[in-house]
Simulated scan of single mutants.
Amino acid sequence: MTADAVPLDASQASKLHEARNAIREQLGKIIVGQDEVIDELLICLFSRGHCLLEGVPGLAKTLMISTLAKALELRFSRVQFTPDLMPADVTGTEIIEEDRATGHREMRFMEGPLFSNVVLADEINRTPPKTQAALLEAMQERQVTVGRIRHPLPDPFFVLATQNPIEQEGTYPLPEAQQDRFMFKIFVDYPTFDEEFEVAKRTTGSSVAEVKPILSGEDIIALQDLVRRVPVSDHVVRFALSLVRQTRVGSPGIPAFVDELVGWGAGPRAVQYLILGGKARALLDGRFHVQVEDIAALAPPVLRHRMVVNFAAESEGISSDDVIQRIIDATPQTEDELTRDARFQKIFAS
């Protein structure tokens, strides 16, 4: 257990679990299925992270995010990213304003849609990298700098971005530095037959479901602070470090298949997000501590956009998710096996 972790009592630990169930119930009025996607969105939210959702058009990515915003008593903005969108259209700009009483003119900053609690960056990869980069400072520093003046963003602040697969027409690949600001990259898949059957029935009728707000901004901030107080053992931290360090090509102790299939691996931010995500996942499940299974379950959404496979892997149809799963399978989950394995002793010593 880390030294600064404060033990939680049962009533505190149950708050996030109850909030998850209430939000799920509200989202279930509009969204059919996608339980895993919703859980990962909530983990991201309560970890103070940002989330990138990828899927083909028509899978209700935008509807899911806007419905989540309704279930939270927060200010919501949607930005439709297009090829002609400029950075100032997102962050805001300075305008000249005249004081009618005195006749003097002065510069005034007009806030852009980024100054909201929940920002939906819709189809973020349909705008050029220049405009995509307008989000970098906001996502990392939670502020916007215009004309040497820093403008703090509201708290809580949560960027949810959707993107279409890069193979589709009219898309620009997100720079690696931009992707690294997102805690999770979540794949949104097609619904099952039964789910799509229910979607067809709901969306072609006249009834409209009403979503009630569950949490306020103050509630979310309190729950985010609660997540950071969840204890985590040194063994779980070592396991998270083991997964991330095995993605780094050329490092001591990594599996041979990583050198063969990976172009470059994940940085320290991946370890931070694995541990924070594990804490949030534990509380969402009503548990007081983080397990190795939490880290393993969150490894794909945390690592898939931070670890890049090389041409050899692409030519064989091997994705980053395939490599991540192989790394998980090759990593012992018990403390004794992990610390005694000669290969991991090299990883820990490097």
Score class of each variant (00 low, 15 high):
T334G: 08
R269L: 14
I166F: 01
L153C: 00
H289Q: 13
S206A: 14
R48F: 01
L261N: 11
L72Y: 11
A10K: 14
F158S: 00
R281L: 11
E18F: 12
L27D: 04
V211N: 00
V232W: 07
Q345Y: 10
E196K: 10
I124G: 00
V236R: 04
G205C: 02
L338H: 07
G277C: 06
K61A: 05
V249T: 13
I254G: 13
V144S: 03
S320P: 08
F257P: 08
V244K: 10
E210L: 09
L74G: 07
K29P: 03
V227I: 05
R78E: 12
P301M: 05
M107R: 14
E97N: 13
D35W: 03
R202I: 02
L274C: 10
D180P: 00
A312M: 06
F182N: 02
F193P: 08
P268R: 14
D122A: 04
L298E: 04
P301H: 08
E94H: 12
L136P: 03
I347W: 12
Q168M: 03
T339K: 13
T93K: 06
D219M: 00
F157P: 01
E98P: 05
Q272L: 15
D180Q: 02
E195H: 05
G278N: 07
G58P: 02
C51S: 07
P332N: 04
F348T: 13
S315I: 13
N117I: 01
S47N: 09
P128A: 02
I166M: 04
A161W: 02
V90N: 01
V119S: 05
R248V: 14
L63W: 08
G217A: 05
R148T: 15
T131R: 07
L63Q: 06
R78S: 09
N164V: 00
V90I: 09
N21R: 15
A3Y: 12
P332V: 08
V199A: 06
Q179C: 12
D336C: 12
E337L: 14
P7I: 07
V292D: 03
S14P: 11
I328R: 05
E25D: 15
S207V: 15
F257D: 06
I254P: 15
P128E: 02
V208A: 05
R105K: 15
V230S: 04
Y172H: 01
P268M: 12
V258S: 10
L274Q: 08
R287P: 11
K70M: 07
S207C: 07
A209C: 07
R20C: 11
L45R: 06
E123R: 01
S47V: 05
S66C: 07
L223P: 08
